[in-house]
């Protein structure tokens, strides 16, 4: 994924707080993906407007972590969602 790529959740994919299991999940067509804290933090920034690079910098600042490491985590996580068609990426 490139720094200028813009990730966004397509129609039919949404974040949902599961009150029974007390965790965030990503609801998608016929699937529910349990999110850990990192996954939830990343997806909370994904809005279909800001670029991958912008989001990485925001998260690096927020969690006082190296931006390269954040970008690596994001690329792995978001890339897997894209392969499952749970994420649109425009450039």
């Amino acid at each position: 994924m490139e720094a200028t790529d813009i990730p966004g959740l397509p129609r039919g994919v949404r974040l949902h707080f599961d009150k029974i299991r007390e965790t965030w999940v990503l609801l998608a067509p016929e699937r529910a993906v349990t999110l850990d804290q990192i996954g939830h933090a990343i997806l909370s920034e994904v809005d279909g407007q800001r670029s991958f690079g912008d989001i990485a910098r925001t998260l690096a600042e927020k969690y006082s972590a190296p931006v390269d490491q954040i970008a690596r985590d994001m690329a792995g996580f978001l890339g897997a969602l894209r392969d499952r068609r749970f994420l649109d990426v425009t450039s």
Binding site: I20, E30, R31
Partner: peptide, 9 residues
């Protein structure tokens, strides 16, 4: 929904 179902087909 109250017992934890997320997906309804």
């Amino acid at each position: 929904a109250e017992i934890g179902v997320l997906q309804l087909h």
